[in-house]
């Protein structure tokens, strides 16, 4: 783990003025590499670079863009800012949640997708907005967002349209108590 700090230090040449490290930049770098901020890496960094762990944790919990939990490989975000909300982002989020089988803030079990809501992305004219892996998609409706994600799912999971539908249908029942009833169907 000591190497982490060492390597990150190299990437930090411009900002790494001893005690003058830019914490946000550093955390961004960690997050880019691990997809989230792992506790042991932060602890190691604090020790190596003589930074305050408390300050790291304060900053990490302050900004929504930092995550202390592992996040999916593909990040799906819907905007829940005022403009997007007014133009129906809630429905879009619900639909995406259904298709992906996870609630906002969660990551799919295989670690492939995570869904979150963010506040205004600064592109309100295109409201409501969905961002998939950093790519912005404007003027979304529940149906259009679903189609977008299904396309993505098909590619990343190598499923056919029919298989995908089945998958979504199955996910929708997961966690529901009547899933017991469906268990029989699953076996085939």
């Amino acid at each position: 783990m000591a190497k982490v700090a060492e390597e990150l230090k190299n990437g930090q040449k411009e900002t790494a003025g001893q005690n003058n490290v830019s914490l946000v930049a550093l955390l961004q770098e960690v997050q880019e590499r691990y997809n989230y901020l792992p506790e042991d890496v932060l602890r190691e960094l604090a020790r190596e670079k003589n930074l305050s762990l408390m300050e790291m944790y304060s900053v990490a919990t302050f900004y929504k863009s930092f995550s202390l939990q592992p996040r999916g490989k593909h990040k799906v975000a819907t905007c829940s800012g005022t403009a997007c909300h007014v133009r129906g982002s809630e429905k879009v989020t619900e639909e995406l949640s259904r298709v992906l089988g996870i609630k906002p803030g969660e990551t799919s079990q295989d670690g492939a997708y995570s869904l979150e809501t963010v506040n205004c992305l600064g592109a309100c004219a295109l409201a409501p907005l969905v961002v998939v892996d950093g790519e912005y998609h404007g003027n979304m409706t529940a149906a259009r967002a679903a189609a977008l994600i299904k396309e993505h799912l098909k590619k990343s999971r190598g499923l056919s349209a029919a298989e995908l539908e089945q998958d979504v249908e199955k996910k929708a029942w997961e966690g529901c108590s009547c899933a017991i009833l469906l268990a029989g169907n699953d076996k085939k």
Partner: peptide, 30 residues
């Protein structure tokens, strides 16, 4: 942080969720 040079406690979260806590909300080694 200023008198004890410990930085064992600090603010976490933001807005109405802001509160005092320790790193990773566990007993602070510092």
């Amino acid at each position: 942080s200023e008198q004890m040079q410990a930085k064992a406690i600090g603010f976490i979260n933001r807005g109405e969720k802001r509160r005092i806590s320790t790193p990773f909300e566990r007993k602070a080694e510092e």
